[in-house]
Write a protein that binds this DNA or RNA. Structure first.
Lengths: 337, 337
DNA sequence: TTGAAAGCGCTACCAT
DNA sequence: ATGGTAGCGCTTTCAA
């Protein structure tokens, strides 16, 4: 490979017959440079193909418009779509986005080393900061925003009221006449919201309606499917067959819809369905699914607003915390029950 | 926010009672440091939470064991799994991985600005370098490896012989007795491999067997599904109904398997199936799919080997180019025809 | 084996 | 308005 020595401000200084600090000022729109001199320097810089050395710049001062996202250790397409949306919007604002799939403390450290000064970290409600994470956050030059349920000192927080989202979904089903609503998913704030929603709506509740499973991520898809299949068929053939089903994630949806097909259960005629997470892939099912999901564009907006505040220096950890409420999007998988 | 000044090698030097060049040598495994001194310095560095300043390192032309991956603008889970595998293996080798979803030239520029000095870029065979990409590659301090079919001067290349992969898949089907094999997918090297394979195997070929579709990514899933549904049912009810089907991607698989269900076609009894791309999600189907796919761990190995060569300085753009051949993994979706 | 000094490209400060 | 100088954190050279 041919190595071409980079043009430096000193080279430009020589060519322009000025000193290198003057070139630096001209190039950085700093005050105190004769307009005529500045014009000459700028022109020369262009002609000579000058490219600033970011390492040298960085060694002297710090901030830059960059953004790091720490991808949680969770399968699924939601985060892919979030990243895509984030990248797209950040581009219009001239922010460089990087994604790390490393464990959070490590990711934060990597971002710090590489001068990324705003980090968004998706963490779940059961997360508690590890000693490493705390250390890295202290060392981190910029700002950290935690979204998804995790909390920590010195970090902005965006909560997602998943419980309320599912609660609302249950109320909607009640409103359109359903009496027996089941829930499939992990035991989280979502299942809690489901139970509260059932109580509030005075539905016919039976413990069998709450089908909790372990994430396919930990359990393997095959095993999850089998467990779910057994539990669900038992419920389906019982005397309290549900008329509607809430799926707590795209994860459970993929498996569950598959099971429904095997059992020849028609959606929505035999069973109405609401699925948490709204991603395009869900539309491969014959029936467009009613979903309950935090809006990706809403998340992106909120996060980039925090970013801009940080960049302007107006930043500080906010109280009260921001909360995002999942929205219900009614499509064809739900009918009056 | 509490600002804690970074600890530098000078701080360590003071603590260790040596000079900072000695610390530098110790930290970089350079020769000429008393083992005892070195041990002390290393321990101190750990205790003091020393993190090297990559900008300063870069200023003196040093590499920093970082790796950037440019995620192609394609939906699908394959790249997610690739990233995960890459991250995992890189961790064991102490390499920091960053992912960018920006357009390639922009991504390269961002990586350069942030001192990431090895970039892997997934690009398809029809890709031709944009002026911007060429410019950014020239400016880029480190090394660029292009994988997936794209090529460019000054870059390492890893090709994937998708055509041969599909060709081999056809030969396998021929070997187990199939006579009429159809193909569903985009018009790419894969469909070319399919045609060559059909000719070689002296199969009963009919143009109807080649069902080309536009990626769901550009077309929308609904439209793709409808188009595919029409074409396939026509073929299925013709007098030359296929006994086996090759799907060119997870993308077409998701849609096609859905269609097969609607038509009540049983896999593999009524139809054998081979799918390109081997990802865990495909296992949600009742029948484990026979797949034909570049091995993710193979890709990771190959790429990290190139990385290590680069890091050791033994690097140069290799000729001939490396080629990865997709592997056939026979599962239950194919039976003798 | 060790360390003093130079220098990478840049910006900040303070003279001029 | 301009430029000399110092210094960011690091590696390299070379003398001790």
């Amino acid at each position: 490979m041919i190595i071409i020595a980079d043009v430096t401000i000193k080279d430009i200084a020589v060519a322009a017959g000025v000193s290198h600090p003057t070139v630096s000022k001209a190039l950085n729109d700093a005050p105190g440079v004769n307009p005529e001199t500045k014009r000459r320097i700028l022109k020369l810089a262009r002609q000579m193909n000058y490219v600033p050395n970011v390492a040298a710049k960085r060694l002297v001062n710090k901030k830059n418009r960059s953004f790091g996202f720490i991808w949680p250790k969770v399968e699924g397409l939601f985060f892919y779509h979030l990243c895509t949306a984030l990248q797209k919007e950040a581009l219009t604002r001239d922010i460089d986005v990087f994604v790390s799939m490393a464990e959070p403390a490590m990711a934060l450290r990597n971002f710090n080393q590489h001068f990324i000064d705003f980090v968004l970290c998706w963490l779940f409600p059961n997360w508690i900061p590890s000693a490493d994470f705390i250390k890295e956050r202290e060392r981190f030059k910029g700002e950290v925003t935690i979204i998804g349920g995790g909390r920590m000192d010195q970090c902005n927080t965006i909560l997602i009221d998943r419980g309320k989202g599912v609660y609302d979904a249950v109320q909607y089903l009640a409103k359109i006449g359903h009496k027996r609503v089941a829930f499939v998913g992990e035991d989280t704030e979502k299942s809690q919201g489901y139970i509260k929603g059932m109580l509030k709506a005075r539905m016919e509740y039976d413990p069998d309606y709450l089908i909790t499973i372990v994430s396919t991520y930990y359990n393997g898809i095959e095993d999850s499917r089998k467990e779910l299949y057994d539990k669900f068929t038992a419920l389906w053939h019982s005397d309290h067959r549900p008329t509607a089903l809430i799926l707590d994630s795209q994860d459970s949806a993929f498996v569950m819809i598959n099971i429904l097909r095997d059992l020849d259960i028609q959606v929505p005629d035999d069973l109405s369905i609401i699925c948490y997470d709204d991603i395009p892939e869900l539309s491969i099912y014959p029936v467009p699914l009613t979903t309950c999901s935090p809006s990706i564009s809403g998340i992106v907006d909120k996060v980039l607003t925090i970013y801009e505040n940080f960049y302007e220096g107006k930043s500080s950890v906010k109280q009260p915390e921001e909360v995002i409420l999942p929205e219900l999007i009614v499509r064809e998988s739900t009918v009056p029950g």
